[in-house]
Simulated assay, not measured.
Amino acid sequence: MNASVNVSPAPGEKNRMPGSTRIRQFFSQYKIVALLVAVALIWAYFSYATNGAFLTSRNISNLFRQMSITGMLALGMVFIIIAGEIDLSVGSLLGLLGGVAAILDISQHLPLPVTILLVLLLGALVGTFNGLWVTWLRVPSFIVGLGGMLAYRGALLGATGGSTIAPSSDAFVVIGQGYVSPATGNVLAVLILALLAYITWSRRNARQRLDLKVNPVWMDAAKLVAAAVALFVFVHVLNDYGGIPVPVLLLLGLLAVFSFIATQTVFGRHIYAIGSNIEATRLSGINVDRVRLAVFALMGVMCAFAGLVNTARLAAGSPSAGINGELDAIAACFIGGASMRGGVGTVHGALVGVLVMASLDNGMSMIDVDAYWQMIVKGLILVLAVWADVVSSGARR
């Protein structure tokens, strides 16, 4: 005789889901959507406050150019944070590498390709040096970054003699101030859209071969249409003011590379695994120290890119370059959904976080908000972003 026990929920318990729980689940699943809505609201407010000046092609072009430097730092920083580490030296390292670029370009008169190659190589070496302290010598990354923040700033002051090195060569300045022609921008938009369509088609075929769940055709088509609209609006607005800025194009290229690493490579999966549970990852046979070392080396390379663009944008090497750059990059990553506990975060989320920060900086400057209020607002947003991470973590649990 089989007996079964039917445990049914108490009356009303089936539908009992506190509003706070639903909110947590929404933020956990749709962080990027919520951030994009926040960006739209920020832009709408500043457009109203500036009588439409905020949304002019000129200001949008300047906004994206301004965010490109912090965006490059954020691309490297999000990997650092996902791996469960932190690097406070990136602002000072940006300044140092930018200063070295100015010296090579202005004082040594090296060809532009040689200058770029040497600065990128130096960035990778310094990033690896930071990683060696963390992996081999077991010094906490917070302390290594703090020491680097002081040491690299001192090295920059020593290399430049505490004075600005100027002017940069015309070829070098193009990196930070140049534009891609409108025709080239249109061609790139078409190529990017074709690439997105190919990737979507390839993923659908791969999932079908593996008998995995596949999104409805209309859903993938809707995503492509939304991407096409956003892409061509983006290009059209920037073409109205001379074309796509070179730093923005460089940032988009780096975004594609880092997105591929994070989502399509074994190395990217290892980064997430280390941040989620480093001991379990080590016991599974993964060389944890090698992965962490590579992450710090990538961070150094991104500091080199940011330093090159910053020096080219200013047409000079400045001893004050990169101050607070690490704070903006870290804040952008947390705003974009990265978790301070590691193992969580996305590359595109970090860039949306940069867009939020850059939009606030740009908009508040246009309406003449005092500098101290700008700092207060950015600090509050950072705390709110970490609180949202805590809330969404509760939803995941």
Score class of each variant (00 low, 15 high):
residue 6 N to I: 13
residue 18 P to V: 09
residue 19 G to C: 01
residue 20 S to N: 02
residue 20 S to H: 06
residue 21 T to H: 05
residue 22 R to P: 04
residue 23 I to H: 07
residue 24 R to F: 08
residue 30 Y to K: 15
residue 31 K to D: 15
residue 31 K to A: 11
residue 32 I to M: 14
residue 32 I to F: 07
residue 36 L to N: 08
residue 38 A to N: 03
residue 39 V to K: 05
residue 42 I to H: 04
residue 44 A to H: 03
residue 48 Y to I: 10
residue 48 Y to A: 13
residue 52 G to H: 09
residue 55 L to Y: 03
residue 57 S to G: 04
residue 59 N to M: 11
residue 61 S to P: 04
residue 64 F to C: 07
residue 67 M to Q: 12
residue 67 M to N: 04
residue 75 L to I: 08
residue 78 V to K: 03
residue 81 I to Y: 03
residue 83 A to R: 03
residue 87 D to E: 09
residue 88 L to I: 07
residue 88 L to P: 02
residue 100 V to G: 02
residue 104 L to A: 11
residue 108 Q to E: 14
residue 109 H to F: 12
residue 114 V to I: 14
residue 118 L to G: 01
residue 121 L to M: 15
residue 121 L to C: 15
residue 122 L to Y: 05
residue 122 L to A: 15
residue 126 V to C: 09
residue 127 G to V: 07
residue 128 T to I: 12
residue 128 T to H: 02
residue 129 F to D: 01
residue 131 G to W: 06
residue 134 V to F: 01
residue 134 V to T: 04
residue 137 L to Q: 14
residue 137 L to M: 14
residue 143 I to R: 05
residue 143 I to V: 15
residue 144 V to H: 01
residue 145 G to N: 00
residue 146 L to D: 06
residue 152 Y to L: 05
residue 153 R to K: 15
residue 154 G to W: 08
residue 155 A to T: 03
residue 163 S to V: 12
residue 163 S to P: 00
residue 165 I to R: 11
residue 168 S to T: 13
residue 169 S to M: 02
residue 177 Q to D: 09
residue 179 Y to D: 07
residue 179 Y to Q: 14
residue 179 Y to P: 00
residue 182 P to W: 07
residue 182 P to N: 09
residue 188 L to A: 15
residue 190 V to R: 03
residue 191 L to R: 04
residue 192 I to K: 00
residue 194 A to C: 13
residue 196 L to Q: 08
residue 196 L to K: 00
residue 207 R to M: 13
residue 208 Q to T: 13
residue 210 L to V: 09
residue 218 W to V: 10
residue 227 A to Y: 10
residue 228 A to I: 03
residue 232 F to W: 10
residue 234 F to R: 01
residue 235 V to Y: 02
residue 240 D to G: 15
residue 242 G to D: 10
residue 242 G to Q: 08
residue 242 G to I: 10
residue 245 P to Q: 06
residue 247 P to L: 06
residue 250 L to F: 10
residue 251 L to Q: 04
residue 251 L to Y: 04
residue 259 S to L: 08
residue 260 F to S: 07
residue 262 A to L: 07
residue 263 T to R: 12
residue 268 G to C: 11
residue 275 G to Q: 07
residue 278 I to R: 15
residue 279 E to T: 13
residue 288 V to Y: 07
residue 294 A to D: 00
residue 294 A to Q: 15
residue 302 M to D: 03
residue 303 C to Q: 03
residue 304 A to K: 04
residue 304 A to G: 10
residue 306 A to Q: 06
residue 307 G to Y: 06
residue 307 G to L: 06
residue 310 N to A: 13
residue 311 T to S: 11
residue 319 P to W: 02
residue 319 P to K: 05
residue 325 G to K: 04
residue 332 A to H: 07
residue 332 A to Y: 05
residue 333 C to N: 08
residue 334 F to A: 10
residue 336 G to D: 08
residue 339 S to W: 05
residue 340 M to Y: 09
residue 345 G to D: 05
residue 348 H to I: 12
residue 349 G to T: 00
residue 349 G to I: 02
residue 350 A to S: 14
residue 351 L to K: 00
residue 352 V to W: 06
residue 358 A to S: 13
residue 360 L to V: 13
residue 363 G to R: 02
residue 364 M to C: 03
residue 366 M to D: 06
residue 372 Y to Q: 12
residue 373 W to A: 12
residue 374 Q to F: 05
residue 375 M to A: 14
residue 378 K to Q: 00
residue 381 I to P: 05
residue 387 W to K: 06
residue 393 S to G: 15
residue 393 S to Y: 02
